[in-house]
C-alpha cells in the first residue's frame, strides 16, 4: 500500500481519537436528551393511554387526534416546528445552587421528542391496558373497589408490566431519533460528528463510523438493560407480556 495513504488513514483515526472527548460530551447530551424526552413522554403518554381506554367520547377523540398527528408527522418536521413556533428563549433553572441554562434548541428538542414519544407511549399503554383481562376489573369491583381504585390497584400494575417490551422499543427509537436534532443544531453526538468531519474532510468515514459505533453501544446497552428489568419484574407463571 502507498505509505502516504497509510499515514493519512492513521492520521484520520488519530483525529477521531483526539476528538473523542468532544464526541463523548455529545454522547452524554444524547443520553440526557433521551432520558428527559422519555420522561416527558411517560408523563404525558401514560395518562393519554388511560384516557384512550377509559375516557369519555370527547376526551378520547381529542387525545386520539393529537396522537395521529404526532405519529403521522416526521420527527424532523415536529422538531423544526417546535423550534420555530414555540421558540422559547433559553431557560435558566436554579437547583440546589446549581444553575443550568437550557438552550432554546434543547427545549425544542425535548418538547419535540418527548411529545412525539408520548403519542407512541400512549399506544403502548393503551394496548397493555386493553390486554388485561376484563375479569380482573370485574373481580376487583366485586370485592368492593370503585372503578378508579380497580383500575389503579389491579389493572394498571399488570398493564405496566406488560408494556415493558413496547417501552423498550420506544427507548431505542427515541435514542436513535435524538440524532435528528441535528436539524436544529443542538450539539449532540451526530451534530458534533458533522462539525468534526467538515473540519477534516478526509476523516468523514472514520468519524461517522465512530459515532455509529457509539450509538450501537448505547442501543445495545439499553436493550440488554431493559431485558434485565423486564425479567426482574416478570410475574412467575404470569403471561408473557
Amino acid at each position: 500500500m502507498d505509505p502516504t495513504v497509510v499515514a493519512q488513514a492513521t492520521g484520520d483515526w488519530a483525529f477521531v481519537l483526539d476528538n473523542a472527548p468532544y464526541l463523548l460530551v455529545g454522547a452524554v447530551l444524547t443520553v440526557v436528551l433521551t432520558v428527559v424526552s422519555m420522561l416527558l413522554g411517560f408523563l404525558v403518554g401514560f395518562p393519554a393511554g388511560i384516557v384512550e381506554v377509559y375516557g369519555g367520547r370527547v376526551s378520547t377523540f381529542l387525545v386520539e387526534t393529537v396522537g395521529i398527528v404526532l405519529r403521522g408527522t416526521p420527527i424532523v418536521v415536529i422538531l423544526i416546528f417546535m423550534y420555530f413556533v414555540f421558540s422559547t428563549p433559553s431557560l435558566t433553572l436554579g437547583l440546589f445552587d446549581v444553575t443550568v441554562t437550557l438552550s432554546d434548541a434543547f427545549i425544542a428538542s425535548v418538547l419535540g421528542l418527548g411529545l412525539r414519544s408520548a403519542a407512541y407511549q400512549s399506544q403502548i399503554f393503551r394496548g397493555a391496558l386493553q390486554s388485561v383481562d376484563e375479569g380482573q376489573l370485574e373481580a376487583a369491583r366485586s370485592v368492593g373497589m370503585s372503578k378508579l381504585e380497580a383500575i389503579r390497584h389491579v389493572v394498571v400494575p399488570q398493564a405496566l408490566r406488560r408494556s415493558i417490551p413496547g417501552f423498550q422499543n420506544e427507548v431505542t427509537i427515541v435514542l436513535k431519533d435524538t440524532s435528528v436534532v441535528f436539524a436544529i443544531g443542538l450539539a449532540e453526538l451526530l451534530t458534533r460528528s458533522y462539525d468534526l468531519f467538515v473540519r477534516q474532510t478526509t476523516a468523514v468515514l472514520e468519524v461517522v463510523l465512530f459515532v455509529s459505533a457509539i450509538y450501537f453501544v448505547l442501543t445495545f446497552i439499553t436493550n440488554r438493560g431493559l431485558d434485565l428489568i423486564g425479567s426482574y419484574y416478570e410475574i412467575p407463571g404470569g403471561e408473557q407480556a
Binding site: T172, K176, D177, T178, S179, V180, F182, L190, S193, Y194, V204, V208, V211, S212, Y215, F216, T219, F220
Partner: peptide, 9 residues
C-alpha cells in the same frame, strides 16, 4: 441499532 441519519452520513 444505529440512527438512519448516521447511516445516510
Amino acid at each position: 441499532g444505529t440512527p438512519l441519519l448516521a447511516q445516510l452520513f
